[in-house]
């Protein structure tokens, strides 16, 4: 499995993301945001950071970047797409995931280790976890409040798209939502950083199973619907 780690100007978790998937046994390469194709890649990782300085609105500028059309193609091909933090913000801005990320209720940046619950392990990203399992991933964001309207929320619930929730909501996210998956089950976005949770020495190794599972992605089986 070869993954593309998308690099926007201002991405700053790109190295961490690449290191994580490689550590999990995958192959990975950086792909510049000015590229227009992702052929040859089996999946896409959109790292955290401040793409385009978060100017205008976090993730907004990335939505008009040349690479975006190619990311959408990868998603349409049922290949895995993971967006973390700014990557999640970008996925909502480009329409691969519903809802939006708005300013934390505190209006301050929040960086801490967060205890989360895996609310849906019936996805090709989270099947190595138990349903209801508690994990620790760091969060570090200023705009991490997940917002969506009632109708969208009902759909998320009905389709079992809420994958990860906060046990102690740090940002005011609707119903403690920390991560959601698309209806198709191959595009996952989350605010917490699993790529920073790969070693007990650094505080948690709960993120390892997520990346390990991604390297074993099989399109025919992991294509849910």
């Amino acid at each position: 499995m070869k993954f593309a780690v998308i690099r926007f100007p201002g991405s700053n978790c790109d190295r961490d993301m690449l290191n994580a998937i490689v550590k999990a046994g995958g192959e990975a390469e950086y792909v510049d945001y000015r590229e227009t194709t992702l052929s040859g890649f089996d999946g896409v990782l959109i790292p955290g950071g401040f793409s385009f300085g978060d100017y205008l609105r976090s993730g907004a500028m990335a939505s008009v970047a040349p690479i975006t059309a190619a990311i959408k193609e990868v998603a349409a091909d049922n290949k895995p797409v993971l967006g973390v933090c700014n990557g999640f913000q970008i996925l909502t801005e480009i329409g691969l995931l519903p809802g939006a990320l708005i300013f934390n209720d505190t209006h301050t940046f929040i960086s801490r280790n967060e205890t989360l619950t895996i609310t849906n392990n019936d996805t090709p990203f989270t099947s190595e976890y138990e349903e209801g399992e508690t994990v620790v991933y760091p969060v570090a964001h200023g705009e991490g409040h997940y917002y969506c309207d009632d109708e969208t929320y009902q759909q998320l619930v009905a389709n079992n798209q809420i994958v990860l929730t906060y046990n102690d909501n740090p940002n005011g996210s609707r119903n403690d939502i920390a991560g959601i998956i698309n209806e198709n089950g191959n595009v996952l976005g989350m605010m917490p950083h699993p790529e920073r949770a790969l070693e007990a020495l650094l505080g948690s190794d709960d993120g390892m199973r997520l990346f390990a599972r991604m390297t074993e992605w099989e399109a025919e089986h992991d294509y849910i619907h």
Binding site: R15, F109, I110, S111, R112, H193
Partner: peptide, 25 residues
């Protein structure tokens, strides 16, 4: 104060703010 600072980006922070020195691998 320190929860307003990203203290783990880079994924090598062994000890962050809170008690004592910072340690980065």
């Amino acid at each position: 104060i320190y929860e307003q600072y990203d203290n783990q980006v880079g994924a090598n922070t062994v000890q962050k703010s809170g008690f004592g020195s910072g340690i980065v691998r």
